[in-house]
Design a binder for these strands. Structure first.
Lengths: 214, 214
DNA sequence: ATAATGACATACGATGCGTATGTCAATTAA
DNA sequence: TTAATTGACATACGCATCGTATGTCATTAT
């Protein structure tokens, strides 16, 4: 009678390990997370971990890959539902900041990840997010909305600014006020990308970011 | 006969520990640096380390404080010798990127530091660099060169962009070409800060950054 | 001269990682 | 149907490292 098929059990084990590690990494951090502890919390031992992921770093990679996939999916949804390209780009930046405000992402992806796995610009997953942003910038260039500039370069600078803004906001005493200042300054910088003619309107900063902090 | 005074010996011991740790952290990284090893390389033991710095993290703090002081000093020199405020600000940003290209700074200050000590915007030292940049932006605002924007917010965004640009450049296959693209995009973003009238000239990007990569 | 402080070294216990080995179920082959 | 093999996972071991507790010796204070 129906004991679950092998492949499913294995996938389940991997998922349990990733979930347990993600929780541990996200709360106490990578270095402080004991493999014995969080494998046990998943009802397993380190044996399973080494079998499936090679070592602790391998597991961190798997956790980050999972988080990154979620981030990419969220970004795509955001940029897809805007009614023009520029707005889509701005919304995507805002979504980026919002995600970087989440403690789990901040801890695992933005702090421990780079320390353990090296420069994030070398990760395949992180590059997916950048690529998504680059594509938008490429289209904006073709469209003539922004000045001629290397899309990937701009995407990396903008994401860097976003991430730091998020860290600043998240650790601020008054996150709401800080968020307003950061978003304002962020939009000023983004306007540097716009061509002179397009700049007159001074497009408004999206206000959603404040809701997430209310 | 002149055995050195007590205070000097102690300062020397501390300096030796910081230097040894700085070297170890900068090469193999914080996590891989064995306290037994690098204290021994300084002709001491962990006893001295725990006595002076409390623990491994305390020593990392001391190392980062030393590096940060050097960074701040370099930034002040750069911004002081420019002939106008805007140029001084742009030069300071460029110097920031150049420093972030140095492997020791990248490893200790930009990767291991945040992972071990938390968000850099909370470090007293890192805030010194930001404050220096903020002051310049404040003056630029008073002067009427840039649009009204919170100086600290702008400083943090700009430094974030700089740091990510640096990581991208440093890990690129063709750092020189990448550097050109990054600097161009960086200047485009900075122009967003300039008031419409000031923007006509499209001030040129300083080229010094390319020299450091040649 | 003696007491007290403090700069360091040594000794110890605990924890955590990686590997080597063992076990048992599930697939495959005969 | 049964025997052989694979592979998922647990257990056991050795090693390195960290933090603390304790010891020693020189300097400074009384």
């Amino acid at each position: 009678m129906g004991h679950k098929p092998r492949k499913e059990m294995i996938a389940e084990t991997r998922a349990k390990l990733v979930a347990a590690a993600r929780h541990a990494f996200g709360t106490v951090g990578y270095a402080e997370a004991s493999m014995d502890d969080f494998t046990a919390s998943a009802g397993l031992t380190r044996g399973a971990l080494y079998h499936h992921f090679g070592d602790k770093k391998g597991l961190l990679q798997a956790v980050i890959a999972e988080i990154d996939a979620e981030m990419l999916a969220r970004l795509k949804i955001v940029s897809a539902r805007a009614d023009n390209l520029w707005q889509g780009f701005v919304d995507e930046c805002t979504a980026y900041i919002e995600m970087a405000l989440e403690p789990e992402i901040q801890r695992i992806v933005l702090r421990d990840g780079p320390a353990v796995l090296g420069d994030p610009s070398q990760w395949p997953s992180q590059n997916e997010c950048i690529r998504s942003m680059s594509e938008n910038l490429q289209k904006l260039g073709d469209e003539g909305t922004i000045v001629a500039v290397d899309p990937e370069a701009a995407a990396r600078l903008v994401s860097g600014a976003s991430l730091h803004a998020a860290q600043w906001i998240a650790n601020s005493e008054d996150p709401e006020a800080t968020s307003k200042k950061a978003v304002k300054a962020f939009n000023v910088l983004l306007e540097g990308l716009l061509k002179q003619g397009s700049r007159i309107g001074r497009p408004q900063a999206p206000a959603e970011i404040d809701k997430s902090l209310a």
